[in-house]
Amino acid sequence: MKLKKMKLFATGTAFAMLFGGAASAAECIAPANAGGGWDFTCRQIGKIMYDIGVVDAPIQVTNMAGAGGGLAYSNVVNERNEDEELIVAASSATSTRLAQNAFGGMTSDQVRFLGAIGADPGVIVVAADSPYETLADLVNAIIADPGSVTFAGGSAAGGFDHLKPLMILQRAGFTDVRSIKYIGVDGGADAITQTIGGFTQAMTGDMSEIVGFIRAGEVRALAVLTEERVPGFEDIPTAREQGYDVVAVNWRGLYVPGGISDEAYERWAERLRAVAESAEWQETMAANGLAPFTKVGGDFQAWVDGVIAETEALSREIGVIQ
């Protein structure tokens, strides 16, 4: 038994050295209170990094709630810009708020986006008895008469749920996005209830919000807004394969301070890739309803830059920002 433990220790130590050596002072900021999505990201990714040996000590989690992530963002930019042992939980809400200038004038280029390794896929849903059988049916109905369809979503007007159908319609060549009717309610369950009850014609939200309703046969998902069909829900086509090139997911990922070295950035990127490829992370995704979505390093930074630019332009069109 002692020999086995020594072998495990040696393997873990070698693996940690391969990924940049000791990380005993590493910290992950969750920009919200305990129990939320950002807290989940820090705790699960940090735990797996330690369990698989890419860091040699547990990663400390610090909850820093405030301003929808803005307090943590300000702290990183102003106080810890060169801290190479710091990672910060982020999601699509982070990029949306940056695009809409919700962080008091701070901009996305003040940090470096590290990667996303899982996502809650966006969906467009109608009631089971809806006349709209496909995404094209819904889009064509809106193009013919914008007032004929009202969407319900769990975010406020201008939030991510609101933007999802607008992106699809833009891909269809529809330009009058202000004419699209949207009602923001208190969460995805309320949005589905509005649609099932016939008060709205469609729901825009996330996969995790509709699973129970799909299994109960109460709704029909017209599209999932991912690059590929979601495991376990292979009968739901993507928007892409239906001719609308939109990927809109509530990604789970990290950013790091903008002033760290390229070497430190790549070190964290390799650690995150190792988590994404681990059996432990596959189990965590399955247990928490996340779909595979892996973009790490420069590819992720470029993707986020594009998302922010599109979100900013769309937010101006609908009057969320000037």
Rank of each mutant, 00 (worst) to 15 (best):
S261D: 07
E227L: 09
V177W: 07
F15W: 09
D186T: 12
A221H: 02
A102N: 08
N81L: 11
A72Y: 02
G232R: 10
I260L: 06
T96N: 15
D145Q: 07
F160P: 01
T94S: 13
G205D: 05
A309C: 06
G187A: 09
A23Y: 08
D262R: 04
G205M: 09
A116R: 12
G153I: 10
L98V: 10
A191M: 04
E227C: 00
E241I: 10
W303K: 01
P121E: 15
A65P: 15
N140R: 12
A141Q: 05
D186I: 13
V111F: 01
T200K: 02
E234R: 06
P146K: 08
P165N: 12
V88M: 06
I236Q: 03
S74A: 12
Y50V: 00
P31N: 03
D235L: 12
T195G: 07
Q100C: 13
C28L: 02
R112V: 03
E277Q: 10
S261P: 01
T107S: 12
V230G: 08
E317M: 13
A116S: 15
G173W: 12
A65C: 08
L222W: 10
Q60T: 15
Y265P: 07
R240F: 11
D39M: 00
S74N: 11
N81F: 14
E312Y: 04
A102W: 05
A119N: 08
Q242V: 09
C42H: 12
A67L: 09
R80V: 02
N78A: 10
G253Y: 02
L135E: 05
C42N: 09
M285T: 03
Q322W: 01
M285N: 00
I183D: 14
R252I: 06
Q44C: 05
P121M: 04
A16E: 03
A216T: 05
G68W: 10
T238E: 09
N81G: 10
S92Y: 06
M285F: 04
F174W: 02
T11L: 06
R215F: 00
A291F: 10
V125L: 12
D161Q: 10
K181R: 15
A144Q: 11
L222D: 10
T284K: 05
G53R: 11
V126P: 08
V230H: 03
E227K: 13
F40E: 02
W38Y: 14
S92R: 04
M1L: 07
M64W: 02
R229D: 01
A144E: 14
V307A: 13
W251H: 14
Q60W: 00
A302G: 01
G105Y: 00
S315A: 15
A302V: 02
A89E: 01
I321G: 05
I180E: 05
D299G: 03
K7V: 10
G53H: 12
G187T: 08
S155P: 02
I210R: 02
